[in-house]
Design a binder for these strands. Structure first.
Lengths: 217, 217
DNA sequence: ATCACTTAAAGTGTCGACAATCTTGCTACT
DNA sequence: AGTAGCAAGATTGTCGACACTTTAAGTGAT
């Protein structure tokens, strides 16, 4: 989150980012209809750019469109969350596996440093918004895979949906205490270039995270 | 391929399908530029529908767009193929795992029957286009996962890219002889409801397939 | 009162024109 | 001769208007 920022250049870009934010954060209610004309006046752009933005939201799986009918924000369901985490487990597992192969020594050192700073903040009891750290951790590993498909699928697509679920189902952040250990184990496996283990640990980390969420429903 | 057909309803739909076909089959050269005005006259629709079609192609990873510059068909590279197969391995592995859990007994029986008919055709030396069968096999397992994210990611996205590589790098179909055995093993694991094994075998099947392709480059 | 049909209203799909941006070739200057 | 700047052309981005489809209300008949 700290390194990589999407720069809007066209009006459709800014509208897309704005709409995505409003949907993910629940300002536009899940399951609600997206009227092109209505949004057009709200965001003060033509219907053409609204349409382009909606198309991109559909490609991000945040919105569903039916021809001649319109677009609706996806509705959240426990089943949907489970399916999402299954895909995430598969992709991030592969991400960790590839990261163990492809991350540079410097990148790994940075990653370890990041974890250290996190654990210190937590130990000192410093109130600190954990989600950002968790996101940062997962981002670095995905980026470390050096696989462009993986990167864009997760970062442009799945993570926004995950965040939408987290925000709207009111789970502030992931489990703080136990997650750190899991993160550490994953990083250690990567540092040891043990791809097999890195994948397994990352998959476990994600399934644990999902089970933790399931109990809260 | 026999069961599920995408029905175009708008002009943008038909244009999208047509363009995708032309790109996947190489009628539009990989790496070439997509001029909106040019395509507009070629397909006899307005630029608006061309733009929507191109947007969808971009979402399918078949096309890359730069703001104020235009869209290009993705260019094929060995690296790109490898990355694609890595993602495919992760997703289809998970697909097989879930299929072992979620396919109905009837669906499994149908799948076994499909394999039988294939092996008979091959044994009898009947010339027969193997790719369709392979695609059918993979489709059924993915659909058997019952995971909508997985299904749409693979069927609407990755498979078209895979086909593009296959067609344009001139690999008619996958390895006929050995692939059958691998298919059988996967199905047996699914029939035994052994999710773990099904995933492992499917992943191996895909990595073998990739290595087979690599030797041909 | 219910159901089928008609029709008006609202919304999406498509179009052509204008505005903004990038590209290319030329000019002028060092 | 090489380079920086400029101008003309071509291409993409955005807009408002029109066409078509869906939806829903309303009318009339059984």
């Amino acid at each position: 989150m700290t390194f990589f920022t999407e720069q809007p250049v066209t009006a459709a870009d800014t509208t897309f980012f704005q709409l995505r934010k409003d949907i993910v954060e629940g300002d536009i209610v899940a399951g609600s209809k997206l009227s092109e004309t209505q949004l057009s006046t709200k965001y003060e752009v033509s219907r053409a750019v609204i349409r382009e933005a909606i198309n991109r939201l559909e490609a991000s799986n945040l919105v569903e469109r039916k021809a001649n009918v319109g677009a609706r924000v996806v509705s959240l369901s426990p089943q949907g969350l489970i399916e999402l985490y299954q895909v995430r487990e598969a992709l991030e597992g592969m991400g960790a596996r590839l990261a163990a192969k492809n991350m540079s020594a410097d990148e790994i050192a940075d990653l370890q440093q990041l974890l250290d700073s996190h654990s210190k903040k937590v130990e000192s009891g410093e109130s600190y918004y954990q989600e950002a750290g968790d996101v940062d951790f997962h981002y670095r590993i995905i980026l470390g895979s050096k696989n462009q498909h993986l990167i864009s699928t997760l970062i442009d697509g799945i993570y926004h949906l995950v965040r939408m679920y987290r925000v709207q189902l009111g789970m502030a952040g992931p489990r703080v205490t136990t997650a750190f250990d899991e993160h550490k184990h994953v990083v250690r496996a990567i540092a040891n270039r043990d791809a097999e283990l890195a994948e397994m640990l990352m998959r476990r980390h994600i399934t644990y995270s999902m089970k933790n969420i399931e109990t809260k429903l």
